[in-house]
Amino acid sequence: MTIKLKINGAERSVEAEPGTPLLWVIRDELKLTGTKFGCGVASCGACTVHVDGEPTRSCQTYVEDVEGAEVSTIEAIGDDKIGAAVQQAWKELDVVQCGYCQSGQIMSAVGLLKETPKPTLEEIDEYMDGNACRCATYQRIRAGIQRASEIVEG
């Protein structure tokens, strides 16, 4: 079936079977490969995108369920003030190692800061619990979120 999506502000028509995870439409059809496949069962957070501003695991979201919604991915998150701040903080602190989970970490971090502009360490740990990093860059992700909060505050 043909599905109309709003991805990163642009209207895109894709051919996909109902029940196809949004993740695979984003990666294989729209060729936006910044959103990663890690587990397919919403256990690692590597596939996190925003649907109407809410961090969402795209591997467990059917493509037909987001028709008409605003979907944004790592490729466009820098257009958002908080998104740009998180990316800047990540670079300032050299958060990444292998980097494969970091798109998802950043998308979740932006979600947290939109909800809670100055999160405590406990709030960070709780919100980011579903985003796994096998390189264990967690110390720096935590510090990166605090730094991004400062950048946004100005």
Binding site: R27, D28, T33, E75, Q87, D94, V96, G99, Q102, S103
Partner: peptide
Amino acid sequence: QKARRDSHDKVNGEGIYGMDIQLDNQMV
């Protein structure tokens, strides 16, 4: 200094991993 050479690519989704290859007409 903190100046990882792979940092920029990896925070904006541009870094290409094996899983990200999309060649014309490829089979999976």
